[in-house]
Simulated scan of single mutants.
Amino acid sequence: MKETKEHIIELADELIRKRGFNAFSYSDIAGPLAVRNAAIHYYFPSKSDLGEAVIDQELQRVDEYRRKSERLGGEEQPKLLVGVFRRNNKLRLICLMGSLTPDYDTFEEPMRQKVKEMCTGILDWLGEALERAREEGGLQFEGSAGDRALLVVSTLLSSLLLSRVLGANIFEQMLDQLLRDMRADWQVKDIKL
């Protein structure tokens, strides 16, 4: 059975992805969990502490994805990441990076560092995966893999945001165009959820 602390982190993660970090309060967590705000403050004295815990949980997931994908071919690694974003699109959730980066300047320094760590971790992983996919012949693109990772991540982030406004099909439309540009032999619909 999950501990109260884990439930708090889980619900905060969901609220960040749905509303944004600055758009929820401890009361939004206390009500659904049937606890008092003081219980949340016990585990997380400040909202920044809670935000850092949510990011730490995401960093653990990214590390698990990275370890899991190391045994996969290079092209399978970007597929894994696109699959995560596709699932978020189906659930109408923004990824944590896309939800936190707009509010970056409002965060306390320790939380800023966590956001930066998350962003660089995802970009580094994707850059390595894209370079491996290019070396194996599964993808073709100009420039450095790190620069391409920035373009892929920015497309993933913006596709989730635009899908909220223009419809879920925008996600596949944007990603499929990006994949065609990199001469991939797969599309978003080919990824199993």
Rank of each mutant, 00 (worst) to 15 (best):
I122Q: 09
D105E: 15
C95M: 12
G83S: 06
L130N: 10
L126M: 13
K114I: 02
E117V: 04
I94W: 13
N88Q: 08
G127F: 06
T101L: 09
E117N: 04
Q113I: 03
L123M: 13
M97Y: 11
R112N: 14
N88I: 04
K90V: 04
K116V: 01
N89G: 10
M97C: 05
E109D: 04
P102A: 09
G83T: 00
E108R: 13
L93S: 10
D124E: 11
E128Y: 01
L123I: 07
L126D: 10
N88W: 05
G83H: 03
L100I: 04
S99L: 08
M111C: 04
T101H: 03
V82F: 15
G98M: 01
M111V: 00
E109W: 09
A129E: 08
W125Q: 03
T101F: 01
G98N: 06
K116A: 11
D105N: 14
C95A: 08
V82Q: 14
L96A: 00
N89F: 03
N89V: 11
N88P: 13
L100D: 02
T101P: 06
N88A: 11
V84K: 06
L123G: 06
S99A: 15
I122M: 14
V82I: 15
R87V: 11
Q113A: 11
E108D: 15
L93M: 07
L91V: 02
E108I: 06
A129G: 13
E109C: 00
K114Y: 00
C95Y: 09
L91M: 07
Q113V: 04
G121R: 13
L126I: 09
L93Y: 14
T120R: 10
K114E: 10
L93V: 02
T106N: 15
L96E: 03
E128L: 09
D105M: 14
L126T: 07
P102L: 02
E108G: 09
L123A: 15
G121H: 01
P110H: 02
T101V: 15
L123D: 06
K116W: 01
D124H: 13
N88E: 08
E117M: 12
L91A: 02
C119A: 11
I122H: 01
K116N: 02
L100E: 02
F107A: 10
E128F: 03
T101G: 01
M118E: 14
V115Y: 02
F107W: 04
G98Q: 01
A129K: 03
M111Y: 06
V115C: 07
L96Q: 00
